[in-house]
Write a protein that binds this DNA or RNA. Structure first.
Lengths: 208, 208
DNA sequence: GGCTGGTTCAAACGATCGTTTGAGCATACG
DNA sequence: CGTATGCTCAAACGATCGTTTGAACCAGCC
């Protein structure tokens, strides 16, 4: 196992970057502060000095990415929500595309995997943190889905959104077998992925 | 935190039962052998005596459930595969219903959550174990999907199966907000869940 | 220079981890 | 009876964990 030393940015940023990588690879429990600080090229005590504890570091890893991600989602949603010509595709694109761009960004490519781990670990305190800080995002999207799918009962709509969420989390965390081919560019692959996800989600949400 | 002592069955079975519960609750790393053996009401050394190591215990937890689960899936698939009147619904039911029955079984209710954790943890050795022992199941189902969806290209089909898998794993591990209402029986709820999953999967697989 | 506040450092803390040990116990067989 | 055999037990092993400590460093300011 190579010991990668990240030497750019402040100590805090180097810790956050290394934490994202190692949390994605080994999980929150599996990644130790000693591995993490070694990879970041900082002293072991720096984590507790700058973040207070390992748990607070985990929260900061989420906050750094999710603040930007959900802001872009809401920004995209605001442009189309409530309008008369809005389609399901538009709403789904507003939700999916910011996540796809993040997940294909160099520095954030592993974050969706970290997020999927957080879902799989039924850690109550982490779920509460996510719900408190970002629950309003899902609520706004749900409201717009309800407007565009008036024929669905509330339980029926929740069911479908739940299943779509599972599919997207699964896909964006790179669980699947689908890999980018060598002969297509990053940009083209991202667009193909977005099209697949959106068409799939539209079919799953709107079937009779 | 209550310390539950399971006193039925052999030492091996008690360990397996307690391991399933604790692995689902705290993850494979998070659940310690001391918590586990205390919950099972057995001595700490019993795990290494009967299973050799904690990793081997993890494999046995999977083997015990997946052997039965996938046998029932293949049995159900064999009854319909290749026949002329077979529908997508039939194939999906063969895949989903055995898992749903397991996930709502008293003694196996937490196993799907354990399975979802295994997906989220990108542990290579565990993935290799699952692929070696149960990869042929997914291959048989994929072949039948390909037969019933001849209009889809191979990459397109793989994409859709991947997304359906994500949705089902998500739903069956109980991530979502959908809970059984108090006024519907266990059996009715299971049937409703199966119908939701199957209709959703049909729509996701077969949309134009 | 001296001093201060923020930061980094090596070292140690107590706790908990998976695993091993060797004695003790029970049942079955000669 | 004696003695294997399979299993359980308390205790300990070394390793690793998150966290804390107190000294060292290092800018900027008087």
């Amino acid at each position: 196992m190579p010991l990668h030393v990240n030497s750019s940015g402040s100590t805090k940023e180097r810790i956050l970057g290394a934490a994202e990588v190692l949390f994605a690879q080994r999980g929150f429990d599996g990644a130790s502060l000693r591995q993490l600080t070694a990879a970041a090229g900082v002293n072991l005590a720096a984590v507790n000095y700058h973040f207070g504890s390992k748990d607070k570091l985990v929260e900061e890893v989420f906050r750094r990415r999710l603040d930007a991600l959900n802001a872009r989602r809401l920004e995209a949603l605001a442009k189309i929500a409530g309008a008369s010509g809005t389609t399901l595709e538009d709403v789904l694109a507003a939700y999916i595309r910011p996540a796809l761009e993040l997940s294909h960004d160099d520095s954030g490519s592993l974050f969706m995997r970290v997020l999927a781990r957080a879902f799989a670990e039924h850690d109550d305190s982490l779920r509460q943190f996510l719900s408190e800080n970002y629950g309003h995002v899902m609520r706004q999207f749900t409201a717009e889905f309800a407007r565009l799918l008036p024929q669905l009962s509330k339980p029926e709509l929740y069911w479908r959104i739940d299943l779509v969420t599972g599919a997207l989390t699964h896909a964006m965390s790179g669980f699947g077998m689908i890999q980018r081919k060598h002969d297509v560019s990053e940009q083209v692959h991202r667009e193909q992925t977005a099209q697949h996800l959106i068409r799939f989600a539209v079919a799953g949400l709107s079937h009779p």
